[in-house]
Design a protein around this nucleic acid. Sequence first.
RNA 1: CGGGGUGUAGUUCAUCGGUAGAACGCUCGCUUUGGGAGCGAGAAGCAGUGGGUUCAAUUCCCUCCACCCCGACCA
Length: 480
Amino acid sequence: MKGQVKSITKKSQNISAWYNDVIERAQLAEHGPVKGTMIWRPKGFVLWETVQKILDTRIKDLGAQSVYFPLFIPYSFFSKEKEHIKGFAPDLAVITHGGGEKLKEPLVVRPTSETIMYDAFSRWIQSFRDLPLIFNQWCNVVRWEKRPYYFLRTTEFLWQEGHSAHENNEDAQKMVDEALKMYVDFYQKVLGLYGYAGRKSESEKFPGADATLTFEILMPDGKIVQGCTSHNLGQNFAKVFKVQFQDKVGKLQYVYQTSWGLSTRSIGAMIMVHGDDNGLVLPPRLASTQVVIIPITTKSSDNKTINDLANKAYELLASYSTRVKLDNSDQSVGWKLNQYDLEGVPVRIEIGSWEATNKEFSIGVRNNKSNYTVSKLEHLAENVQKLLDGMQISLFEKSKQFTKDNTRQADNYPQFKEIMETDRGFIEAFWCEDPDCEAKIKQETKATTRCLPLGSMETEGKCIYCKKPAKFRWLFGQAY
RNA sequence: CGGGGUGUAGUUCAUCGGUAGAACGCUCGCUUUGGGAGCGAGAAGCAGUGGGUUCAAUUCCCUCCACCCCGACCA
C-alpha cells in the first residue's frame, strides 16, 4: 500500500521550494522557455478565469465599459510624463525591429496603458457630457523581472486595468475609493485573505500619480504582497496628453483621472497563504470544483447501491448549484484522496459499503483534515453548503489572525531592526515622511513603507529613524 | 547585475575516462480499491552548447547558454 510518490517540500521547511512544488505538482503552471514567463496549465488558468468572472461583474457595477488597447506603445508616449517614464524605464521591454527592418521609433511592449489610452481620451473627451468616462481592460502586460517567481513576479502577467476621467477631483477620488473597496471586498470575501488598506508613500506610489491606494497582504514567511492598487492620477496625465473638456460654462478644463488594477499576483498570494503540506487549499468561492464525490466500490460491496447513492448525491448537489464532480475513475481511493488534497478541492464525499448500508455520507473538509461529518441524503445539500461557507470563513479568520499576530509596534530603531531580523511581518512605526529616512531604513533593514492605513489617527510621535516629529504610524514590511 | 548551485529517460536523481541505470510516471495484461495497490511485459536517452586534454569524454578542463537559490529592482 505504500506509494513511491515523491512528497512535496514541507511548507515550514522551505517555503519557496514548497510553493514551486505545489504549483508544479498540482499542475497549475510551468516555467516558459523565456525567463520570467510562465505557462498556465488548465488547473491554474481556471483560477484566473474565476477571478475574472467574479471581478468583471463588480467592475461593471462601478460603471466601467470594457475596451482593449494595443500591446505596442510608441516610445515617445512614455516620455511625455516625466515621473511615469522614470518609474517604468528599467522595466520596459522595447521592440527595435519589425518586419525585418529597424523601426523608426522603438515600440514599448505595454507595461501599463495610461499613455496609449489617454492619447485616445484626448480625442474622445470634448465636453463635460463625455464624463465620467470609465474603461476597463483585461490584458497581459510586460515588466522585465530580474528575479521571477510563479504568479508573484513574472515578466509577463495578466491583469485588469481600470481607467477613468472625471470633471473634478472629488469624483476622481470617489472612483479611487470605490475601486479599492471593491478589491478589498474581493480579497476578503472571495480569496479569503486579510490585509491592510492604505495610502502609499511618495516614493512607493505609482509613477505619475498624485496618490496611490493599496491593499497589503502578509505572507507566511513574513514578507508582504501588494495585492492591488488604485491611483488618483490628478491632472498629471491630462496635462501632458491634453485631455480637456469644456465645462458647463464653456471653460476649457483638464480632466481628473484614475487608474486601478488587480493582477494574477492575487492567485500567488492565495496559494501561499492558504496552501499546506498536502498541497493547495482553495477557498470554496474560488474553487471550480467545490465538492468531489468518491464512490468506494469493492468486489464484495453492493456496488449498485453505492453508485445509485453517489449519483443521487451528485444530482442533488448539482441542482443546488454546488460545483460538484463525481469521480468514477479506476484510480485507487488513496490516490484520489491525495490527488484532491493536492488540488485543494474544499469538500470530499466518500460513499462505500458503510454509507450505502446506512444511507449516509462521510464528508471531509480540506482544511480540517482529520474530521469527517456524516449526513443523511435529505440534508446533504444544505450540510455541504454549511461546510463550504464555514471553510470560506475559517480561511479568512486564519489569515486575519496570522496578520494580527504578526503586526507589531516598534517604538525605537533597534526594536524595529530586531523584528526585521526575526519574524518580519508588519511593523507599525512613526515616520517623519522624509524619503531619506525611508530609503535608509530600506537599505539597513529591507523594510519599506507598505502604507499608511486608512483611518489612521494623527498623533504626536518621533520618527523611528531620525527622531524628528512624526504624525502617523506607518506600516512597514519587506515587499515580495 | 553581484554571490552560490545544478544541467543525464516525461519527472526526480544515480553512475563513471571504455558511448548509460533506478524510482516514479506512461502503455498492455491479469489481479485490486476505506489515505498515493500488486505481479508480469513493454515504450522511452546524440548525457544543455561549443571547444580543449586523451587511443577513448556523459565523466577531467575552459567558454557560452539555461534554470534554481540568496542579494539589488519590481503589480
